[in-house]
Design a binder for these strands. Structure first.
Lengths: 335, 335
DNA sequence: GATATTTCTAGAAACGTTTCCAGAATTTCC
DNA sequence: GGAAATTCTGGAAACGTTTCTAGAAATATC
């Protein structure tokens, strides 16, 4: 910058003013500086700009695991949107570990990011609570709900999605409907559960609580629980799986039990992911648009950063009927 | 920091020395400073540290599209490895657009990242060339090869993978083997092509060049080309698809033509992705370990950043035989 | 043409660290 | 116990910008 100033024969401050679009600049000055800038190939240092201005033009994206293809798509559209507005995105996986998550929040704070978009592991964790208390930047949560902290949120309406899906199954004659999903420590699971229960209530049908298996989003958990459910004496006739991992785990378990999806068992996946239609063309699902989620979370965060009051955005879900859930229930598997 | 110094009754420089683990610090001083730090909840500002030290402890990760689940997994393991070493990762999608890619390189340069891991759109592009010339940080390329610039690289050995896969098909009696993959402007495609040709040469069989369709990694391209190939008078009896998108597109096309994979057409996918075994259990594939790729690229970059001479790492691939490629060729589809 | 007003420019301080340098305090040695 | 060697500490400069302040130049007004 000093070099540019010398080359243009002006002061450093004048160079800054030209380059940052300050109004008090004469045409002659602007031309001189731009010429010198071009000649020397000068580029402003974002670090120093941040240092002085207090804005880093960086936002943090904390997620359990980017290798979940649904979230990869969310991250992509989010990054696109942020980039369009001149922001860069720091990606951090918390690997399902609360200590790592807290550590990640700490790093983002010390990096003075302008904002954070996060999908917390658990809303109950005390480590996360303190992480957030110490936070200085605006926050947008994905499918989470916490108290005692102001934040924006983007949430999928899984209540209506699940309600519609379970209604559909009940109409087909199903009564024993398995529901395998992640921990109830996060809003998304509770909303799914609420939808599940609502459908039963609306139809005046009692719920068999053993069919509900909430614990972890991993495929291992889902595989184990599905196996247990469908190898027990009272086999469910249908299953709903909450999330990419759960769907994968459940399919594995059913396959190992030689149960055919769509005939032996009705199957509805919650969440799709890229190429879902190609790889699992027959699977009914509760769909939410990941691009919309990513885009919306970015926009919402920028809005809050500009001083707007944090909003809560709801993304609608759609129950999509395919072959895997149109069969009538088979009460007992023939051995 | 000033507050800490005041509270501890020492100079700012002493605080810095204690916190950054400088050797010239007495035990008494260390204790005083640590106590004051704890009491005030002080945390050093990474921005200011970077400003002064010249190290940002940030690396850039440039990729066509993180929503490709294979690359999402690469990104994840890469980020894990970098985080372990105290680095943060800035993720940038270039969206398949050369101008965006160049812009991303520019932003990373102005952010003074300590290093970059990138999967270039094209090795031939002139915009990329100039981007790299202006780069100041070490670079690791994924499956790419360029000239006139020093860089480390992590490359999958698709030569041997494709050779083995095509050999296998030829042994089953196939002669007309379609190969649909991305542009030949990048090393990975050329290596795949080399493996394909080698197998034919080793078996003394001439290649029908119309079976080779190289152009883009998108599923649209693959779908179109597969459709054209398999609806032409001379239908191939087997197909190899290069990359996640190509596999998806080809499956779509074959499905629309009512051709059954594993009986009407032999199918070998190049690349797997998370849950591949669940969603496409019967598909033979050429496999490379994405976690290894991510981990290795991070380690290699850190190594170069510490002053090591850039290396080229090769990740071995494995041809995995499953049901989709064990049928004998059907010369003509019955209509 | 002199003064008042407006527009533009230069210099310097500030952002929060690290690190150089010099000097103070402590230890070692005879 | 005093000089020399060693260890430790404080002050200040530096990293590359932006922004404040004040003053210079240009324009407007009478």
């Amino acid at each position: 910058m000093e070099d540019v100033a010398r080359k243009a024969g002006v002061a450093i401050s004048s160079v800054s003013r030209v380059l940052s679009g300050h109004p008090d600049v004469s045409a002659r000055m602007a031309k001189k500086v731009e010429e010198a800038t071009r000649l020397l190939g000068y580029e402003p240092d974002i670090l120093a700009q941040s240092m002085r201005s207090g804005e880093t033009r960086t936002i943090g994206f904390i997620i359990t695991d980017i290798s979940n293809p649904l979230f990869a798509q969310v991250a992509q559209s989010c990054e696109q949107e942020l980039r369009k507005m001149g922001y860069s995105m720091i990606l951090m996986n918390s690997d399902g570990d609360e200590a790592t998550e807290a550590e990640n929040f700490g790093v983002l704070r010390r990096r003075r990011v302008d904002g954070i978009i996060a999908s917390l592991i658990s809303e109950k964790s005390s480590t996360v609570k303190t992480s957030l208390q110490n936070l200085r930047s605006p926050l947008v949560l994905l499918d989470r709900q916490i108290t005692g902290y102001e934040y924006g949120s983007v949430t999928a309406n899984h209540f209506s999605g699940l309600r519609d899906a379970v209604n559909h199954l009940i109409n087909q004659g199903h009564r024993e409907i398995a529901f395998v999903s992640g921990t109830a420590d996060v809003l998304i699971t509770r909303e799914r559960l609420r939808g599940y229960k609502k459908a039963f209530a609306d139809n005046g049908i009692p719920i068999n609580e053993t069919n509900i298996r909430l614990g972890a989003f991993s495929d291992e958990f889902a595989e184990r629980q599905t196996y247990l459910l469908f190898s027990s004496p009272s086999v469910p006739t249908a299953i709903l799986t909450g999330g990419v991992g759960a769907t994968a785990g459940a399919i594995r378990a059913l396959r190992s039990l030689n149960l055919t999806i769509g005939s032996d068992v009705s199957f509805i996946a919650i969440d799709e992911w890229p190429m879902f239609d190609v790889v699992l063309p027959q699977l009914s699902s509760v769909y939410r648009d990941p691009d919309m989620i990513g885009r919306e979370s970015a926009r919402l965060l920028l809005e809050i950063m500009r001083g707007a009051k944090p909003r809560k955005t709801v993304i609608e879900t759609h129950f999509i009927i395919r072959d895997s859930s149109t069969n009538k229930p088979r009460i007992k598997k023939q051995l």
